[in-house]
Design a protein around this nucleic acid. Sequence first.
DNA 1: GTCTATACGGTGATAGAC
DNA 2: GTCTATCACCGTATAGAC
Lengths: 191, 191
Amino acid sequence: MSTTRQQIIAKTSELLERQGYHATGLNQIVAESETPRGSLYYYFPAGKEELAAEALEYRARQMSTYMRQALAAYPDPTEAIYRFLLGIADHVGGDNCTGGAPIAAVALETAGCNERLRQACQQAYAWLRQPLEEKLLAGGYPPERAQALALTISAALEGGVILSRTMQQSQPLRIVADEVKRLLTCAATAA
Amino acid sequence: MSTTRQQIIAKTSELLERQGYHATGLNQIVAESETPRGSLYYYFPAGKEELAAEALEYRARQMSTYMRQALAAYPDPTEAIYRFLLGIADHVGGDNCTGGAPIAAVALETAGCNERLRQACQQAYAWLRQPLEEKLLAGGYPPERAQALALTISAALEGGVILSRTMQQSQPLRIVADEVKRLLTCAATAA
DNA sequence: GTCTATACGGTGATAGAC
DNA sequence: GTCTATCACCGTATAGAC
């Protein structure tokens, strides 16, 4: 696959995460990705919407891979998930506000008015939940508990990232991480 | 305070919640609020940014009031918060995707690039946490536990709303509500 | 594959009449 | 307080040369 195309997708996914769909212009994508202006509609004939959908998928797969790798560092699901959340918190507090909530901005903007992007977000979220669910299953949780916990943890993560970005400090997400740990500890002893 | 001004603010806050900052145009605000076109810059001389900041504050105060009222329906904090979350879930699954995450879209778009709106979001989030914190304090939780739980619950709520809107069903938020209930039950017995 | 020029609509904002 | 006209600008998208 062409490098130019990949650069465009990567940069778009980054901008979508930080600014959302409407705030991200095609001009900005071309400029910041340092990519030929003429290439955009060559690789993405359907325009911005097509590009955004691909960027969301790319970001979700990338994040999913990272999660699977991060969660593998500790055998115990509770500890693994806790450390993973703290790792995200480290990224979020800093200067660039990337990581942890790759889909949320676009999802909020488009859920009600753009069916194609809504579906892309839905699919992307499924990918993000999967590594958590796998880890919980491997840790012995019953399937439906693993599913419910994975969804809740991904929701809490996303909410925590939004708060941390808004307050420009990692503390909110750290607090969320602590509480998620409690929830899992509680759930483990109950099982 | 003038009715026209209030109509503008109310409609703006609604649109900001559904679409975010950049997707919400001044024309749309004027049209949907059925308000005189000339009034916009009369009441908000500084333009869109000022209007958005006021709309965020309005929405947060309104939501805060609703929360305080909803949480008062049950004496036990766990039960009260659980029912409150389910109530939001009922709104979110339906046709209009409003309620539950009034700030998130704007927060994600502007946290990194618009200081004034970032601060408005930060303040708004503080208002949203407060009723939860009060309820937990009244229920006997120690101050720092109440604070941490209120923050986590508001984060989980926001993440759950995003998932529910994206999947166009209330189930995700209902699952989040269940897990929050577990967390609180666990926290209550531990205390 | 890439470039440039351009079309066209929509944006936030301002000025001045009423 | 409100209206209308108008501004400059930016957005996406297209056409045609190279």
